[in-house]
Amino acid sequence: MSSNRKLKFGLAINEALRQLMESDPAVFVIGQGVKSPWYVGNTCNGLIQEFGEERVIDTPISENAMSGVAAGSAMNGLKPVMNYPRLDFMFYALDAIINGAANWRYMAGGNSNVPAVFWGIINRGGEQAAQHSQAIQAIFAHAPGLKVVMPSGPYDAKGLLVSAVRDADPVVFLDDRWLYGLEEEVPEELYEVPIGKGKLLRNGSDATVVAISYLVPEALKAAEILAKEGIDIEVIDPRTIKPLDMPLILGSVKKTGRLVIAEGAWQSFGVSSEIACRVYTHVYTKVYTLKAPIEKVCLPDCPAPASRSLEAAYYPKAEQIVAAVKKTMSL
């Protein structure tokens, strides 16, 4: 088995789907565009040829019903991977996912479960404007009964998808098309990245940066920029939004005393706010102090603009992370 084989993000997902379907006849893919040569990137390449239309189901534009269909099949021993090529259309699916799948086990007193994966692709930039740009992980993470994962690279994309499919409960898997060009070593065999386990990507002592999804590579770029100025940051990718790997984050914050949270979603009432709240509570109860207030690098509370002039200011990149780290250091 070659150990240094590299794959791009979309193809890592493709391989995970293929291997999951090969190894478990209960797994199937359903969603708009899964047979399209372009709609879902290269994530579904070749699947329909290999597994047929019974297990690779391209659907009408019917997110609400299709999500319920996925949930209902999951109650019956199947393992659906329901794809939404554009996250914004998941608003139509919220009833089936949140009212339905997320609540089902509890409503049944533990006597039923919905092991479905709801896989939404964040697809933004390119002047697509307000309805084709949104990242709504906070909405899913808010609902009890849902797990939410957001891989930032090919390795985690494959491993988290495997874990999501094998999970006994509904998992929302969110990735970002901006990451689809990333390439890294991906094992050829099936492997799991455990849900709920974050990853320490870089050791540092001056500040902790917790970055999510597309802002992970940006945080690593920021680390390079800061290193040249003698500032040494620790970079953590939680990988799972819910449940959050708080021990990893808290251990780092205790060491550095400074925290920047970078999330490409609206700044208010979001995942970043939840992390900040948990860190503040922990710091207070453990009676140690932060050296500076927590900084958040997020989207402004504003719908996504179309114009490229506004988009450039709307989406944070490494530069904003650098500035936030410096702010925590009063530089």
Binding site: A130, A306, S307
Partner: peptide, 13 residues
Amino acid sequence: ETGCSRGRGGSMH
């Protein structure tokens, strides 16, 4: 800025 949606909406709005 001179667009019908002031450049905020683009082609689809």
